[in-house]
Design a protein around this nucleic acid. Structure first.
Lengths: 234, 234
DNA sequence: CAGTGGTCTAGACCACACA
DNA sequence: GTGTGGTCTAGACCACTGC
């Protein structure tokens, strides 16, 4: 692991262990340089990581301070995968509805930038939070990249498998969010009245080399799902 | 303006002017260092900026490539203020409904971290996109920080005024997103049936020194509003 | 004006992609 | 193995905050 990541982790643990509150001042740069025996740039890189994660904020001419978000139980829109971390205090489970190899819909082919006659894995899953339905997920994986999937992988973590099992590097994503009314099928799965509000999140995930490999449409139960986002550098 | 920002801007313009497509390769680091007569770290810092903005992606051992998002007409959730940039092809206008100095609600006081007897500016506005209602906004500004507001400021850009008029440094934000059903009042303003879906976005904005100064609740018209978010470094 | 964070440089060395 | 991006260092100098 890289030095600046290690330093970032150590500072993060330090903040956690000492239960530092919003606004607490961290040691100055020079002290951190000595403590971690490293150069200024490396410390700054570690701090930038923490700032991006929303754990600290830096004020020029003044110091480095702890930042704490005020609300709990919201899902981080940028948490780079999964609700696990945000909702770890809750009980999240996944149920597979279907897993099959098909030809993509027009929409899926467009978003995956592939031809309509190429094979894709089509996966439908439901996520539960403390027994209640959290969301309904429909995903398409480019089979020429994600060459194999089975029930176990799909019930656990597909992304972990892609990274570790297939040795692929996941790079970046695009996410599109809107609201709408639940269809009959959706309201049945989510156990909510038809035409109730839903939150729709469409995501496209790309490998580090820029190739899209996953297009997902997720419908969230409006009574269970709340999202947050931390902005930096306005 | 800082050197790395200038370089970032120039590269951005270069991409725009040459209409580079998704996946186009940019010159290698060494070439960029020569072209902009600067050190490696400065170029990398400029590229990191562009990567964060979602304009390029860097692949170690391979090169620097142009990234283009696939859809238009969505609002960037991280665009650091305003829809102007995302929706510049559309006609956005703002109408002020009310502007008054009041004592905060419990909710506003909590989010602004002030006492309930401190004064706040309470602002209600409607935003239109091509004549249709886009959203309904209710904001509270800590009057001890944002000492003055008038109709003109509120109809134009409050944030520009805070930055330039008051000389304050805006730092970071927290945003919370959920869905719900429109109330009678909201549906009247948004010209949609009562109980139709709405998207609620609550934001808290902080000065660079960590003090919250603005708490806003925005209700979006579900037929007009679509958001996007670019993820990096998964 | 002292204290503190940020920018920029030059250069050594490392890690990964791809042919 | 060559090309290419990323990490890390030491140090000069700049810019902002707050007493």
């Amino acid at each position: 692991m890289l030095k600046y990541q290690q330093i970032a982790n150590q500072i993060e643990h330090y903040i956690e262990q000492h239960q530092l509150q919003q606004g607490s001042k961290l040691p100055v740069l020079e002290t951190l340089m000595e403590n971690f025996s490293s150069s200024k740039s490396t410390i700054i890189k570690a701090l930038d990581l923490l700032e991006k994660k929303g754990l600290i904020f830096q004020v020029r001419g003044s110091g480095i301070f702890v930042r704490r978000k005020s609300r709990r139980g919201y899902i981080n829109l940028l948490s780079n995968q999964g609700f696990k971390k945000d909702l770890e205090e809750f009980d999240i489970t996944t149920e597979m509805i279907s897993l099959e190899i098909v030809k993509p819909t027009q929409e899926a082919a467009d978003n995956l930038q592939i031809a309509k006659d190429q094979d894709v894995y089509h996966v439908k899953r439901i996520r539960y939070i403390s027994g209640q339905t959290l969301c309904l997920e429909e995903s398409y994986y480019d089979k020429s990249i994600v060459t194999y999937l089975n029930k176990q992988i799909v019930t656990e973590s597909i992304f972990d498998y892609i990274r570790e099992g297939l040795g692929l590097n996941i790079g970046f994503s695009e996410m599109y969010i809107k609201t709408g009314k639940l269809t009959d099928e959706e309201s049945e799965y989510l156990k909510l009245p038809t035409a109730d509000p839903k939150l729709i999140m469409e995501s496209i995930f790309f490998l580090a080399n820029g190739t899209p490999f996953d297009f997902s449409k997720v419908t969230y139960n409006h009574e269970q799902s709340q999202f947050f986002l931390l902005g930096t550098g306005l």
